[in-house]
Simulated scan of single mutants.
Amino acid sequence: MPPSIAVIAPGAMGSAVAARLVEHGCKVLTSLDGRSAATRTRAAAAGMTAASDAEIAGADIILSIVPPGEALALAEQLATVINRNTKKPVIVDCNAVNVETIRRIADIVLSSGARLVDAAIIGLPPKPGTSGPAFHVSGEAAADVAVLGQLGLDLRLIEGPIGAASALKMSYAGINKGLTGLGAAMVLAATRAGAADALRDELASSAPHIHARLGNALPDMLPKAYRWVAEMREIAGFLGPEHPAAMIYEGFARLFEHLAADVQGQGTEAAQIVAFAERCRAKK
């Protein structure tokens, strides 16, 4: 019999992960208290089952998949309920948080008697016909969730303590999303100065891999920019306040915050980014 699993929360990634688990015969619980109608619809489409906090705390495995700024608060909420239970679950923290944050989460979770697995999700939400994304896991309890690899998730063990998976996530996201942020900043600067066409043509000629990447990554980033703000600040914290590179990621946080506001507002800069990307794709 598959283990009982809870996934919090049913966002784009959480609901897709839940759907993959449901496809493999699992009952997947989630919390819908205070959630929007759109979220409830997404959870229902994924086959998720609404549950109380007590029911979620009684699951065998709880996957925490929330924005990084909410990870600590969720750990505290879960620990409060788990403290009352005899049964102790394994909590898999899949959030884009830095090493210091995951260690604080570990202190909270372990104090409740539950076990913690540090996890880094790398890749897009699961889709039918694909095996991804990759779930890199670390910590003493990582072997306790090996069953997830038999339930449709691409589970990859990192030989290391709590913090190893989060360090991987911070490093990978710092490169991957940092390149997207750098591209967005330079595209907007070139557009303001009337050099967008020249920049695009030069990239196509001398750096075709970057040209192709920007054509796809830039428009994909815009609806997610608001979620990337906290992640950039987690990466800055991962580097450390005294490291000069931390300032780069604080700058990216401010850039994505600015772009998110533009998307919700006049959309002037978003339109410039989309126009640049569309012409990149048309020039292939």
Rank of each mutant, 00 (worst) to 15 (best):
P2F: 12
P3G: 03
I5P: 06
I8H: 03
P10H: 10
M13Y: 09
M13P: 09
S15N: 01
A16K: 10
R20E: 14
L21M: 14
E23F: 01
E23M: 02
G25W: 09
C26Y: 04
K27E: 15
K27Q: 15
T30I: 10
L32S: 11
S36V: 08
A38C: 05
T39G: 13
R40K: 15
R40M: 08
R40P: 03
T41D: 15
R42W: 02
A43V: 10
A46V: 02
G47I: 10
M48A: 03
T49M: 13
A50C: 04
A51M: 05
A51Q: 06
A51I: 10
S52V: 10
A57H: 03
A57M: 08
G58Q: 01
A59K: 00
I61F: 04
L63M: 04
S64L: 08
P68G: 09
A75K: 03
L78A: 10
A79K: 01
N83F: 06
R84W: 02
R84N: 10
N85K: 15
T86F: 07
K88V: 05
V99C: 09
E100Y: 00
T101Q: 08
R104H: 13
I105C: 02
I108E: 01
I108C: 02
V109F: 05
L110R: 14
G113I: 07
L116A: 00
A119M: 13
A120P: 03
A120V: 04
I122A: 02
I122K: 03
L124G: 05
K127V: 13
G129D: 03
G129P: 03
E140F: 04
A141H: 05
L148C: 13
G152F: 09
G152I: 09
L153I: 11
R156D: 01
I158R: 13
I158K: 11
P161L: 12
I162R: 02
G163P: 05
G163Q: 00
A164M: 03
A167P: 11
L168F: 11
K169Y: 08
S171Q: 12
S171K: 00
Y172E: 06
Y172H: 14
I175A: 11
G178M: 08
G178E: 03
G181N: 05
L182Y: 11
L182Q: 09
T191M: 04
R192G: 05
G194E: 07
A195T: 03
A198V: 10
R200I: 14
R200G: 01
L203Q: 02
L203W: 01
A204M: 02
S205I: 03
I210N: 08
R213Q: 09
N216F: 12
L218C: 00
M221I: 02
V229R: 07
A230P: 15
A230Q: 12
E234P: 06
E234A: 05
A236I: 04
G240T: 07
G240K: 07
H243K: 04
A246Y: 04
I248K: 01
Y249M: 00
G251L: 11
H258K: 14
L259P: 08
L259Y: 11
A260V: 07
D262S: 10
D262K: 10
Q264H: 12
Q264Y: 01
Q266T: 13
Q266V: 09
E269N: 13
Q272C: 09
Q272L: 14
C280I: 05
R281M: 14
K283Y: 07
